[in-house]
Amino acid sequence: MAETVLSSGEKIFILHGIDADFRNDGRRRCEYRSMEIETKLMPQTHGSARLHIGNTDILVGIKVELDIPHADKPNEGKLEFFVDCSATATPAFEGKGGDDLATEISNVLIAAYQTRNAFDLKTLCILPHKKCWKIYVDVLILQCGGNLFDAVGIAVKAALNSTEIPKITAATLDGGEPDIELSDDCIQLDTSNYPIIITLCKIGDNYIVDPTLEEEVCSTSSIVMSVLPNGKISSVVKLGCGSIQFNTFTKMLQMGEIIGLKLNKTLMDVLKEENQFGRQRRIFGFLK
């Protein structure tokens, strides 16, 4: 997203504002913009979510398929992430232009969900060595308004929360071949320990969360960390071409953990509230 060009005067203005704990849109350093989230808006998928934060728009679709487990991990299912930067965000993403950013985001997601503490692949196994569930998480980035990693993390968690996997009533080995019977009932995934991704952007001597595009251009380095609801950190990556002091790094980690836990709690409360509307809820999708 190097489309934003800022003059040095604008950069200094942003820098001084952050020093005074007052950003361009009036937020404090540790405040997020308001978010809109809607789940289950794509009926042809098993789970979906749309997240709207500032100018950033993310759409996630989950599809679940039956597959054969890996030979060296026979008791585990599979989880695959695919990120697509659509050209609707910026003309630079046309064709293969958005592939680099897409690979980076999908690598962060893979690292965040890698540990068994976050996502236990053993719950996806049906018949060891023969059949398992494969979950495809497909992220579509429609608009970039800064802070992509956080938005993707929240949208993926919300989409996985709304995923319905058909219940298996019978799974037997019929002469070596697996025989599976599915019912119409669905089971939900246990998303209580799924990670939330937090980006902390270092600008000048301070660090902020939820940067806008202009603030991202001003920063030399940022830390992307994924926080699990039980307080553990499942992945940390540093982005950007600048370096950080050790003390700053520790402080950023601690702030990220606090914010991550708070954000996760708010997200789960909102999703529970949405769930209470039940199946009668009117789905707006992009019409609102």
């Binding site: 042809q44 979906s48 759409l59 599809k63 697509d84 659509s86 064709g95 495809y136 497909d138 579509l140």
Partner: peptide
Amino acid sequence: VNCQYSMAVFSLSSGERKRKPRG
């Protein structure tokens, strides 16, 4: 005029998943 037609990977209503969105 430059057009690009792209389908989301999860867009097919027939149930299966598309491998590549465009190209």
